[in-house]
Design a protein around this nucleic acid. Structure first.
Lengths: 248, 248
DNA sequence: GTAATAGTGTCTTTAAGACACTATGTA
DNA sequence: TACATAGTGTCTTAAAGACACTATTAC
């Protein structure tokens, strides 16, 4: 940011931000994982009106001195019990008047990616809800939660749709998928992950070749154990040079 | 959105949104075009502090009953004199405390794409600033304006970086590029546009084949005129079925 | 041994890149 | 006519898909 002029200093000292009505600002966090061939998202029961008792995405108001990223991370930690480590990125901002019955509330949505193992122990009362994505390919819409006892609060179903779309889109040209895997994994699990996210089967030979051709995988020399068949080699993710996957 | 319960109705009637301090909310619009081998953006001179006299992106406060998209379109029309037609999409939300010396101001950035011909007549006092993108490929940063008499106001240089990154990213898998062309255009102009956005040369044969293999181009039967060589065929963009390019 | 998946080798198909060549306008 | 770019045909190269085959573990 450029330096302030003396004029700016005087102006700022006199500025009254409360002269115009302002919306409230919240963050909502889509904590996603992929397991059992399905995408899943962490939901919480709303404890207070509006929509008390309905399932909702974890969210909260942005504090006045807190960055948006910090607010999202605070909400993530407080409502799911996860630590600081998960992948977290801004998704989209929802601001239609009428999306919140309390009045004008603008929400900055974030999405977080966590391996399913990390979500086994999470805050009490949360639900790892399986998603049914009723559309294929590049154009989206609302996404349904399988087995919910009612609709999601607010516009959170639309928000999930945008999250799935973003995840699919980024899978092709970033390394975002590795955020959903434990430290060591097999090629089969990596392929199943991609198939779960994309919602379609992938060619095994081509997938193997393509993945091994990158320098993103490091063989650990270990193999998986206790599977009723030939055990597969375990790999680690190697970020490889400049791009850590956070393109865009 | 789900229906409100009687409890919700009572709660909402009593709700006082002013109980907590709220940030101010603005929109900033990156109006981009591509011409003379460079990306360009529409800038305006700031008429009031802070940063009075500096170049800035057109922006303004979001009204209390106005959607974010509507606010962006209003700002676009008011500050550039363009009509309602341009491609406009939400880009990213910038909300670091300290990004605006007036206090906590969160800005939802939009980007608009307009063919250069449409920008020839635009609001007085605006500048169609050529951009120098100092980085290649998928990882970005701030973007420089060529020939500015000082730094851009606020964090607008970072904002431009995100806009360029988004435009490059979407070029590969959406039809976003056609928003930057007039109704009829030659294959050469389409290729030059892609080269300008991506910042690198493309193979002519491959580009032609790839474009003609899609069903996105309709030959008009006309040819360009008055160019000191064999005139090229003119094409129109045919959106083609379900995908209108607004994936994500 | 069987069952089941891991992993290899190779052929076919498709798309990109390279390049030679012809076509068609203006000056 | 020369010049410049449009547009076509074909060869080479690289990657994806198909598929046959061998390898290695649990049982």
């Amino acid at each position: 940011m450029p330096r302030l002029s003396p004029e700016d200093e005087r102006f700022v000292a006199d500025y009254d931000a409360s002269a115009f009505p302002r919306p409230s600002l919240t963050v909502d966090v889509v904590v996603m994982t992929a397991t059992d061939g399905r995408l899943h998202v962490v939901l919480v029961r709303r404890q207070a009106p509006p929509f008390r008792g309905a399932w909702a995405l974890p969210g909260g108001f942005v504090r006045i001195d807190e960055s948006l990223d910090a607010a999202a991370r605070r909400v993530l930690t407080a409502k799911t019990g996860l630590g600081d480590e998960p992948w977290l990125e801004q998704l989209y901002t929802f601001g239609d008047p009428g999306r919140d019955p309390r009045g004008r509330v603008v929400s900055v949505a974030y999405f977080a990616l966590v391996p399913p193992e990390r979500l086994a122990s999470r805050a009490e009362g949360t639900w790892l809800a399986p998603l049914h994505v009723p559309w294929r390919g590049e154009t989206g819409g609302a996404v349904e939660v399988v087995g919910a006892d009612g609709p999601l609060a607010f516009d959170h179903a639309d928000l999930l749709g945008v999250a799935v779309l973003r995840l699919r889109g980024k899978l092709g040209w970033t390394h975002v998928g590795f955020a959903l895997l434990p430290e060591r994994f097999t090629l089969r699990r990596l392929q199943q992950l991609h198939e779960t996210i994309l919602g379609r089967a992938l060619n095994k030979d081509s997938f193997r070749r393509r993945m091994l051709a990158t320098d993103l995988l490091v063989a650990t020399g270990e193999t998986e154990g206790d599977v009723g068949h030939r055990p597969a080699a375990l790999y680690r993710f190697h970020p490889g040079g400049s791009d850590d996957g956070r393109g865009l």
